[in-house]
Amino acid sequence: MRVLVIEDDLEQSGFIKNVLTGAGHDVVTAENGEAGLEEARGGYFDALVVDRMLPRKPGLKLVQEFRDSGGTTPALFLSALSDVDNRVEGLQAGADDYLAKPFAPEELIARVEALGRRQVSNEPPVTKLKVGDLEMDLLSRNVTRGDTKIDLQPREFKLLEYLMRHAGQTVTRTMLLEGVWNYHFDPQTNVIDVHISRLRAKIDKEFDKQLLQTVRGAGYCLTA
């Protein structure tokens, strides 16, 4: 993926660049809002990582103007302002995700990769999801693996849907809490792990090939 990182703190932007490069992505950096907007309009990128407080043009304004001028590249806000209200502001300005500083490197990678994915998959309206022999019909809400029908609770269905929409990429616990439960805080108990292991018991237990993998130190990955 080609990622544009717009961040004025050079140390921070160097760190982000290292992290993303380490995960196999190409990174271009810009140091202020105006240069960043120009760069975003000019070059082809799969994702934008934008700091909220930038010199010359604040991040919110940058993303807003970029969207107003027809830019569709998905954007992720990085910000020390991590309030729910700040997050809502960011998303209303046109960003696709919001990550509070400081963050774990794995969290950043997972979220940026999820962004790149989103652009590809938002074109045809999807009614069926498929990962290996695991299939989900979003209309009839049927889930099957091979010939076996799998019964899921509503919440398990949402969880699996999220994982299938992000198939092949790492999904962190925080992303699951946000995406499936819509919670923006971190419960201290490992609640997500237990939900995952329940889901795993239903979709993987009886089968040879394990689809739902644990990514150590990061999260989970559903892959064929």
């Binding site: 919670y183 108990t189 490992n190 609640v191 237990v194 939900h195 292991s197 329940r198």
Partner: peptide, 12 residues
Amino acid sequence: DVADLFEPACEE
């Protein structure tokens, strides 16, 4: 919703 989130963790 909160109950639903924590119920499996309790069982665990």
